[in-house]
């Protein structure tokens, strides 16, 4: 209870920024505690006791390094079929992380799912189906005519006497 209140107090003290703001002003934000809200992309990349997640807030994307246990609440990851969970990440930003070969990253101290991800509904428009049907019919006809023409030409060439 006390730790939650402390965490909430800490979060209220930190300015929320976009990923692009951090990267564009990496000198200013280097080694400072930042807070971002972004969608988790693809999947958790496990590294022993720790893990990487990649998050995208629509302005840019960044890697977040965190203990594997923190990823337990993540359920939906962003890809073509899903809008991933939106998370609030608080952590230390590095513009040249010595631990990770000079990478720009965030070492998360807390991660909270603020919006559950959803499955995307990619409805197939009727016009696409009709257009595809017309296209396939026309291309098959064209291919057949092309083939037939080639056969006729080949056959007729046999009966043309050389001059």
């Amino acid at each position: 209870m006390v730790s939650t209140i402390l965490a909430l107090l800490l979060v209220s003290q930190i300015n929320q920024v976009t990923i692009n703001q951090i990267i564009a002003n990496s000198h200013d934000f280097d080694q400072s505690v930042i807070m971002i809200e972004a969608e988790v992309i693809l999947e958790v990349l496990e590294r022993n006791e720790n893990a990487w997640i990649n998050v995208n807030d629509g302005t840019n994307a960044i890697g977040v390094f965190l203990p594997l246990s923190m990823t337990a609440d993540l359920e939906v990851f962003g890809d073509y079929e899903h809008q991933g969970d939106t998370v609030r990440v608080v952590g230390v930003f590095s513009r040249n992380c010595v631990e990770h070969g000079g990478e720009i990253d965030i070492h998360a101290s807390s991660l909270e799912v603020i919006k559950q991800g959803v499955k995307q509904n990619h409805k197939v428009p009727v016009w696409k189906g009709l257009l595809a049907l017309v296209g396939v019919s026309m291309s098959i006809t064209a291919l057949l005519l092309h083939r037939k023409r080639k056969v006729i030409m080949k056959f007729s060439n046999r009966f043309v006497k050389p001059v």
């Binding site: 992309i41 693809l42 990649n54 994307a61 890697g63």
Partner: peptide, 9 residues
Amino acid sequence: NYQNILFYH
């Protein structure tokens, strides 16, 4: 993905 080769860390 958007982060190019940085995606894999």
